[in-house]
Write a protein that binds this DNA or RNA. Structure first.
Length: 287
DNA sequence: TAAGCGTGGTT
DNA sequence: TAACCAAGCTT
């Protein structure tokens, strides 16, 4: 095993958070749900939603038997409600194509709605113990610093990222090493103020040795939210989620002053399958 | 390939 | 306080 993997494992044994989807009792379905919920949403907000979701839909068949609208409601305010829609579609695909079971092969996982390069490998590793490089933003940052000597992992995940992480994984216990890398990136090797004093690989960290140079190139594009279509969509989705009956257009219209933007936002929601016009000027979640 | 997609906590 | 950040996916 590489030194970095061994050090990360030792640290993880002592410092790993006790998260329910890491429990030996967690099912592949529970782990898959956690991974989808954790796409761009912090752990603290996922926790209650995950517990409620698994209580309500303990298997893919339970979710597939319910409506997309209920999935979107249970999603609550986790953000990016398309993920709820895709998770429902994923459950349906699991029932129709995989006998209601979560597959253990990366290729099969990648073919499911809402499951991309990261999530497919995370499920293969954490639910089935497979040796797959699990590369999220935390792992990319940790490996970029500790191994490559750069301040961050760059704009997007590349095939080279998977290849590099793969070389760090031991033959045995690879999923725990991946979890350790992720946890280090999430708790110690964080983006803004890394806690190098608490890091198990600080003595060999390439970024540290190079004097912690700043990130190269232009930073990420501003992620502005106020005044965007996303904000308008979010306001409309909140109304649709909380309504038991179809919502009149004029009620949706009340969420935002600009008519052009309102029209665009609602059309986008309908286009994405998050909203349906169930009657003349009446909208609801997909049923 | 880069833009679009929610929401809320932290600095 | 505005900007940053968060277990990405899809087109």
């Amino acid at each position: 095993m590489t030194a970095i993997a061994a050090q990360a494992l030792t640290w993880y044994d002592e410092h790993a958070r006790d998260l329910p989807w890491r429990s030996p009792d967690a099912t592949p379905w529970g782990i898959l749900v956690s991974e989808v919920m954790l796409q761009q949403t912090p752990v603290v907000r996922v926790l209650p939603a995950w517990l409620n979701w698994l209580d309500k839909w303990p298997t893919p068949a339970h979710l597939a038997a319910d409506t997309p609208a209920e999935a979107i409601r249970a999603w609550n305010r986790l953000g990016y409600p398309r993920r709820a829609l895709r998770l429902h579609a994923c459950a349906t695909a699991l029932v129709s194509q995989h006998e209601g079971q979560v597959p253990d092969a990366v290729d099969a996982l990648l073919a499911l709605p809402g499951i991309g390069a990261y999530t497919a490998r995370a499920v293969a590793a954490f639910a089935f113990g497979r040796r797959e490089p699990v590369v999220d933003v935390n792992v990319r940052r940790f490996v970029a610093r500790a191994v490559t000597g750069l301040a961050d992992g760059g704009a997007a995940t590349t095939p080279a990222d998977f290849a590099l992480v793969e070389t760090l994984l031991p033959a045995e216990d690879a999923p725990r090493v991946s979890a350790a890398f992720m946890e280090l990136g999430a708790l110690v090797c964080v983006a803004r103020s890394p806690r190098c004093a608490d890091c198990p690989v600080v003595r060999t960290c390439a970024w540290r040795a190079a004097g912690q140079p700043a990130a190269e190139g232009p930073g990420r594009r501003p992620q502005g939210y106020a005044g965007t279509d996303r904000q308008v969509r979010g306001l409309m989705m909140a109304l649709l989620r909380d309504a038991r009956d179809p919502v009149p257009l004029r009620t949706l219209d009340a969420v935002w002053p600009d008519e052009v933007q309102r029209r665009r936002a609602l059309a986008g929601l309908v286009e994405d399958g998050l909203a349906y016009e169930v009657g003349a000027g009446l909208y609801s979640l997909p049923v």
